[in-house]
């Protein structure tokens, strides 16, 4: 069976199929399940895309190394957890250590991101945007390969998830919980919490701090911001650093999630997700990124449900819908759902 045949079948006797689909969908347990699934995926998507949104919004640089920073964050966070957590560590201590790992990885990767910006990207701002894509893509090749070397030397499989790091999650997060007749994992709810926290902190950073002001000003009109005395070069460095740090924070979260896990291919997966969410949301709007993350999460939950309840016999549907959404948004509203045309002059 192909993915197309069921659709053709459905066209033949559309009435009953649609009716049974609707009656299945309108069940309270199903709806709650879909909403919970959508929220947990959306939280991860926003986490992954937040850093890229800041960088792309201010600098117009489409950072291809974003996914690699996430992957690096996953491994670094996993390393911290594996070293610090022993079998005797209690669940709340594990949560505390998790936040510690997150803070440490954020610090390290922010410094690393700033260094990458200063050493590699700054020399090519005056060239075509193409070269920024090329350069960050080169960083992907080098970083992924370096991580692969380290992982292999440590005797682990770079392509499969890091089980040891997955195992450091406390038991109560790994268990399933029941919410209004629908089961979900404790971890997924924890992810929603982390996602909301990161959104709140980033929001605060953008609206309450001096650098947030610079970013918003620079996204509107970087030349004008410069003319008003903002050191835009320094702002670029800080933003690239913070964006990289956020990418790595997402990685630390994914390291605990069995649907992702720390692995080298995570780099590409995270990158594509970040691209889709940022482009759908629109250039230079953090709000757009959050809404786009929620939307893509909802698409994902609905299409996953369609597949699991055998309405569609095509396992790739959720992923495909994600990229179709990207293509459609670019066709219909290239500046994204919340973007304004020509913002940032890129």
């Amino acid at each position: 069976m192909t993915g197309i045949e069921p659709a053709l079948l459905a066209a033949g006797d559309a009435g009953p199929v649609v009716a049974s689909l609707l009656s299945d969908l309108l069940d309270v347990g199903t709806l709650v399940g879909i909403v919970l699934g959508a929220l947990s995926k959306a939280a991860l998507y926003v986490l992954i895309a937040a850093g890229l949104s800041l960088i792309f919004g201010l600098m117009g640089v489409l950072n291809f190394a974003h996914g690699s920073f996430t992957m690096l964050g996953a491994y670094l966070g996993g390393a911290v957890m594996v070293v610090l957590v022993s079998s005797g560590t209690g669940p709340y201590a594990r949560i505390a250590l998790f936040f510690l790992a997150m803070a440490a990885v954020f610090g390290v990767m922010t410094a690393f991101g700033s260094a990458v910006e200063k050493r590699l990207i700054r020399p090519i701002y005056d060239r075509q945007p193409l070269f920024q894509i090329l350069l960050t893509f080169g960083v992907v090749l080098v970083l992924d390969e370096l991580v692969r070397i380290v992982v292999e030397v440590r005797g682990m499989q770079p392509r499969s998830d890091w089980q040891e790091a997955l195992g450091t999650a406390p038991g109560f997060l790994q268990n399933t919980i029941t919410v209004a007749g629908s089961t979900t994992r404790g971890l997924y709810m924890f992810e929603v919490l982390i996602g909301a926290m990161v959104v709140a902190v980033t929001w605060g950073f953008l609206t309450r701090t001096r650098y947030g002001l610079y970013i918003r000003a620079g996204s509107e009109d970087s030349e004008m911001a410069q003319a008003l005395g903002i050191d835009i070069r320094k702002a670029f460095s800080v933003v690239f650093g913070v964006g990289s740090g956020l990418a790595a924070v997402a990685g630390v979260m994914l390291m605990w999630d069995p649907r992702f896990g720390a692995s080298v291919p995570l780099s590409t997966d995270a990158l594509l997700i970040a691209f889709v969410v940022v482009i759908i949301g629109g250039l230079g709007t953090f709000r757009g990124t959050v809404v786009a993350g929620l939307l893509v999460g909802l698409f994902d939950a609905v299409t996953t449900w369609l597949f699991h309840s055998a309405y569609v016999d095509f396992a790739g549907l959720p992923e495909m819908v994600m990229f179709l959404a990207l293509v459609l948004v670019l066709i219909v509203k290239p500046q994204g759902l919340f973007g304004v045309e020509e913002v940032g002059g890129h």
Partner: peptide
């Protein structure tokens, strides 16, 4: 620019998943 790169990447990924 980057939007062209993104939309062509999107089309290729749709085909890839398919």
């Amino acid at each position: 620019g980057v939007y062209f790169a993104m939309i062509t990447l999107g089309f290729a990924e749709v085909a890839h998943v398919f």
